[in-house]
Amino acid sequence: MTVLVGPADATGPTGRAGYGNEHNEGDDMVKVRRWFPSFLFVLPSIILIGIFVYGFIGNNIIGSFAMVRTRSGRIKAPGGFQNYSSLIGDPRYQHALWNLLVLTVTFVAGTMFFGLLWALLLERGAKFEGLFRSLLLFPMAISFVAAGVVWRWLLSPATGAQAVGLNQLFQMMGLGGLQSSWYSAGRFNMAAMAIPAIWQLSGYIMALFLAGFRGISEDQREAARVDGATEFKLYRYVLFPQLSPIALSALIIVGHMSMKMFDLIYSIAGQSSYTAEVPATLMWTQMFQLNDPTAAAVNATLLLLIVAVAVIPYLIYTNRTEKGVH
C-alpha cells in the first residue's frame, strides 16, 4: 500500500536549502565538499534501489526477450518481440486484461464514491465521529489475505438451498432476488471482485478527503455564505475544486493498487483461477503451473508498462507543480 507524493518543500529546492554554499562560488572543491557528505548519506539507498528496483527490472526485461528451446527441440519461446506478440495475442492474456479493466474501473469508482460520501457525512463533525471514522477505516488494518479468506466465503456463488455467505444473508433478509454468482460467472464478473477491495480501501479514501476538507479554512465557507451561496454551490464551486489534487492522488493510489492486485484475488478465487484471472495472478500461474518463466517475464514487463503509463505522468505533473510553487 502506498501513499502519495507529498507537499512541496516549504523552503524550496534552491536558496538556503540548496546545493552547496553560494558564498564560495568559484571554488568547486568547497562546493563538492559541501554536498558530497549528503550524497554519501543516500548512497546505501541508491545502491539498494539501483540493484533491487532498476537492476532487476532490467534483468526481467532481458529475460522477457529470451529464446527458449527444450532438450527435445520444442521451441517454448521464439525470442525477441515475438515473445510479446505471442502473449498479447493469447486469448487467455486478453481475458486477463479485460478482467483487470473491469476490476480497476469498478474498484476506482467504488472507493472514490464511498470515500467521498463518507467524508461528506463526517466533515462537518458528528457525534461519535471518532468511532464512525474508526469503524469505516478498520478494514485497512487487515491484510488482503486475511480479508480474502472471509470474502471467499461471503462471495460463494451457490444460490437457493445451498447458499452461503452473502447469498444466504440476502435470502434471510427476504432479498433473494439480489443473489448473484459474484465473481464466478459473467462477462463483468470482476466487478464483484472489486467489492472486497472497495470494502478495504474506501475508508482510506475517506480519510484523505476528510483531511482535505479540514484543511480548508472556515473563513472561506463563511465568505461564500455571506455572498449568499447555497450549500450546494458552496461545495460545487468553493470546496470541491480545492480537493482536486487529493482526488487525483486518490485516483493514482487506488488505480495502481488495482493493477498490482494479487493477494486478494489469489486468496478469494484460489491459485490459478481462470475466471478471476488478471495479469498479476496469471504471472504466478505462468511461473509455477505452466513452467514458462519467459512468458511470466513478458507479462510482468507489460504490467510494469501499464502502471508506468499511469504513474509517470503523475510523478512528472506533481513534480512540476511543486517546482511551480517557487
Binding site: P157, Q162, S184
Partner: peptide, 21 residues
C-alpha cells in the same frame, strides 16, 4: 450439479454427499 467457483475445495463437494445434500 451445484454452483461452484474455480477455487472451491473438494471436501465441500464430498461433504454434500456425506450430509445427504
Amino acid at each position: 450439479a451445484n454452483t461452484a467457483s474455480d477455487g472451491d475445495d473438494w471436501p465441500n463437494a464430498t461433504d454434500m454427499v456425506a450430509d445427504g445434500k
